[in-house]
């Protein structure tokens, strides 16, 4: 299981960063970085306004 960020869809708003319970995400300019503390819980994917995140 891992978190995929579709950079072509992402509007780099940072909403995903705010809901991540693990603090695993960081928004830097126009891209989202995912670190190894991500638990693939999928909360970010659920709330993304454009559906740019996917747990696979």
């Amino acid at each position: 299981m891992s978190l995929n960020v579709n950079r072509y869809k992402c509007g780099y708003c940072g909403a995903c960063v705010g809901v991540c319970p693990a603090g695993a995400l960081e928004l830097i300019e126009t891209w989202v970085e995912v670190d190894n503390t991500c638990t693939s819980c999928g909360i970010c994917a659920k709330i993304c306004p454009v559906g740019a995140l996917e747990v696979k």
């Binding site: 940072g14 909403a15 960063v17 809901v19 991540c20 319970p21 709330i47 993304c48």
Partner: peptide, 26 residues
Amino acid sequence: DGIESKIGRWGGIDTSLKPADIETCA
């Protein structure tokens, strides 16, 4: 540092929002 706030978390304050605590907007 806004919705993404890291400063609070680093300082030991859990600011993470549950899905019912955020409006997701376009």
